[in-house]
Design a protein around this nucleic acid. Structure first.
Lengths: 253, 253
DNA sequence: CGTAAACCCTAACGTTACGTGAGGGTCAAC
DNA sequence: GTTGACCCTCACGTAACGTTAGGGTTTACG
């Protein structure tokens, strides 16, 4: 059975204008039109709309959602699993916010204000853009991303565990070098950088030294990534960047 | 100690432009400026910013937040308690979404698709605007709302329970009349409408028959309210509206 | 002590995701 | 056969910033 715009808007709890808009930008149009030009949505269209609303709820832009859902490599099951993880993360963050509110409340009642740093910690933790990057890596539109998507498709849980273990090994090794006072330009640091490059190359997509250097710049420029490195070891973001650049120079000879 | 825009942006995890914007619209400016015109934010400003971000996270518009926080009757503790409730609701909704995702996943794996109605149920449940209304009722700028805020301030948990019980009683009584086939223009229905009006009058703010009729129009026009009535009894939104209008006519003589 | 990098300022136009009419057909019902 | 509830396509409005553009200020470094 088919539904008109008003019906769909009613079912989904959104406005008619929103549906018009989704049609305009080519995100989600009706499968059919009546003789008079009325939009007629099928049940399948509703399923698609649900997906769209899910991603929107999680902070994705409409253009991103469009690319995501139009990509032939887009896998619904995979997307749903990612959604589940995002929801879990967001739930955890909300619970932390509730904790923060409770603490602020008891703080007010006892007259002891919160530390300004702690106060905002709860906000910085959940970052939807992190997932956006992940999604783009999976379903984005560059050759590298496409290749990556093709490869990671076959990866199972244990594969991801192995990958994670490898990454962590490289991380701790690098921290050890830093603690030993070894400079980033030391061959041992460069070797680790090379290991990391080969890791990307093996697991995701062909990664040249140049591409790796580009990634290094990105890691250093983006606070989200630097934060990840800084958690392992203070100053590691910069160190890691330098090691990768040194490795590029060495490879060029 | 004072912080520059960049510092505050860093701590709070937002952009400098955002802080500029908040200053522009008069939502949150720095307490001081340096000789060169640099914005200097105090720790107190940070606390305010945290409040702003809380409300924003929950879907409030900046203008609403502004009015909220500038209102002299604004009570931080009360606001935090409301925030806590909203967070709890939103968490519950996210968990339901996770359930829905899990079901969709297992549905896909077993080949049994979801019913289209159920599919969207999870979205319709949490409505931030509902709280917006509540906030406006508490800290809004009409006389009625101000009066309401003054009165409800003293209400305790058991008061709210009593109020809820009263409301539910009126609801079931109305449903009984509907089942008995009594029209909305019947004196018994009008009596219930009058009871509801007096309830508002006693618990919140002086509510004339005219005002009640206005509310009735609003209830009928706004799907959020109609949904509430429809849950009690099919067709009740319309019935209730008609009873209130009839009651107004009777009062006018 | 100068100068370059890293910040800061205002001003103003651009963008996303719709809201909100305007002006005009369509359809079910009484 | 007309009335009211829907539907259509423009097309401009709006909120909450993003993004240059053009130009001062502060701090670090040689």
């Amino acid at each position: 059975m088919e539904h008109t715009v008003g019906a769909v808007a009613g079912i989904a709890g959104i406005s008619v204008r929103t549906l018009h808009h989704y049609d305009e930008i080519g995100l989600l149009g009706p499968s059919e039109r009546s003789g008079a030009g009325y939009r007629l949505y099928t049940d399948d269209d509703l399923v698609t709309l649900q997906q769209v609303m899910f991603f929107k709820e999680l902070g994705f832009g409409l253009e991103d959602i469009k690319r995501l859902m139009h990509d032939p490599t887009f896998d619904r099951r995979e997307a749903l699993r990612l959604q589940h993880r995002m929801l879990a993360d967001k739930t955890a963050q909300l619970m932390k916010m509730m904790d923060a509110v409770e603490q602020t409340l008891s703080g007010i009642e006892e007259g002891t204000p919160m530390a300004t740093d702690d106060m905002f910690e709860v906000f910085s933790d959940f970052d939807p853009k992190r997932y956006e990057t992940e999604v783009r890596e999976r379903w984005g539109d560059t050759d590298a991303y496409r290749e990556s998507a093709r490869r990671t498709k076959g990866y199972k849980k244990e594969d991801w565990a192995r990958f994670k273990a490898e990454s962590e090994q490289i991380g701790t090794d690098t921290a050890a070098l830093m603690d030993a006072g070894v400079p980033a330009t030391d061959p041992r640091a460069m070797d680790l950088a090379e290991q990391a490059r080969l890791q990307i190359d093996r697991w995701f997509y062909p990664c040249s030294h140049e591409m790796h250097a580009n990634l290094a710049e990105m890691y250093l420029a983006d606070p989200r990534f630097t934060a990840t490195y800084e958690k392992i070891h203070e100053g590691m973001a910069q160190y890691w960047h330098d090691a990768i650049i040194a490795n590029l120079a060495r490879a060029r000879g």
